[in-house]
């Protein structure tokens, strides 16, 4: 069962159970909705940007433990970061969970930090979308795209 614990690590279970930064922001500057039609997972993401940095971020969502934990840990991980930093984190995270070992995965100065807890997802191809939905929605919000279905491909 050790493999299963690679996926369902304590940190993930904890954030899945008690997502941080959940709810709506009072004055978001950016917003996007994400929907994974395969699982029915939904997320609404709110960002308040200030001078090019993430000042606050929150989300509302329903879904599995992986998707909720991913959104929760994402909100913690991007606070205070610039758009460029957030986007390189996006690339690093999505490369990591899809098990890619390319330039993005090895992008020099980006540290996954707590987000490294999602490395185990790469062993579960069917669950990759659960881990990336929040991130694709985040990118859409930053790019001003409020599309109904965030494409996680």
């Amino acid at each position: 069962m050790s493999e299963l614990r690679d996926l369902y690590q304590e940190l993930i279970l904890d954030h899945g159970r008690r997502p941080r930064n959940s709810g709506k922001l009072d004055s978001p500057t950016h917003h996007a909705d994400g929907y994974n039609p395969l699982c029915g997972d939904r997320i609404a993401l709110y960002l308040e940007m200030d001078e090019g940095r993430v000042k606050s971020v929150s989300f509302e969502g329903t879904g599995c433990a992986i998707s909720q934990a991913s959104a929760s840990l994402m909100t913690e991980g991007i606070k205070g970061k610039t758009v460029a930093e957030v986007l390189s984190l996006f690339r690093k995270l999505t490369a990591t969970v899809t098990g890619r070992d390319d330039d993005a995965a090895n992008e020099g100065d980006v540290e996954l930090g707590k987000l490294a807890v999602f490395e185990g997802v790469s062993q579960y191809p069917m669950r990759v979308k659960c881990a990336t939905l929040a991130w694709h929605t985040l990118r859409n919000a930053l790019e001003g795209k409020d599309v109904e279905v965030a494409v996680t491909e």
């Binding site: 299963l4 369902y8 879904g63 433990a65």
Partner: peptide, 13 residues
């Protein structure tokens, strides 16, 4: 309190 997808992945194990 447990999402069906988590149920499915763990049962598969």
């Amino acid at each position: 309190g447990i999402h069906p997808h988590d149920v499915g992945t763990i049962l598969d194990h």
